[in-house]
């Protein structure tokens, strides 16, 4: 049996507390203890990005973070992208551009794409492709994903100008 530690963290702005086995990864804590099933496991070894979340604002793979490390920190998941019941522009554009097929990689892509656009309002195609290289998609060939991110960036820039 593994030791457990009481973890107090914030997930999408809400306080969440749970007893966490010390060897449990954050991905499992979020899924099994915080009810954030939008965090997906594709590999468990940091190679696919399906479990992408932000930890104190920094994009990470939650499978490569221990659950106990979240203590006192803030986590953002795909469930937190929607604000006041409204979809985030990235979520809208992903649907509009058919940027998802099976959808298992989509939450990770959205979290990673948001991290990109938060830091770079006008990324080139190449910058988008490299920023999203840590997120594997096996359905789309990435074409419509890149287009959706480009379209979102364009819209966000326009709305900022207004």
């Amino acid at each position: 049996m593994s030791d457990a530690v009481l973890v107090s963290t914030k997930v999408n702005g809400d306080v969440v507390e749970f007893a966490c086995p010390t060897d449990e990864v954050l991905m499992d804590s979020l899924r099994d203890r915080a009810g954030m099933n939008g965090v997906k496991e594709g590999c468990g070894t940091g190679d696919c990005g399906a479990c992408s979340v932000t930890l104190d604002g920094q994009l990470v793979c939650s499978c490569l973070v221990l659950g106990v490390e979240a203590n006192g920190r803030e986590i953002g998941t795909v469930e937190g992208l929607t604000e006041d019941g409204k979809l985030h522009p990235l979520q809208e554009k992903f649907i509009e551009h058919a940027a998802l097929q099976c959808g298992i990689c989509t939450p990770g892509f959205l979290v990673a794409a948001k991290a990109l656009l938060d830091n770079n309002a006008n990324p080139t195609e190449t910058e988008i492709r490299y920023a999203l290289a840590g997120n594997l998609c096996r359905c789309t060939g990435y074409d419509k994903i890149v287009r959706a991110v480009q379209a979102t960036a364009k819209d966000l820039r326009k709305s900022k100008k207004r």
Partner: peptide, 18 residues
Amino acid sequence: LRPDGIDKVTGKARYGAD
């Protein structure tokens, strides 16, 4: 637009492990 889009961009869609 696909009808399951919203579930899939919000993390609500339930897959095998969910």
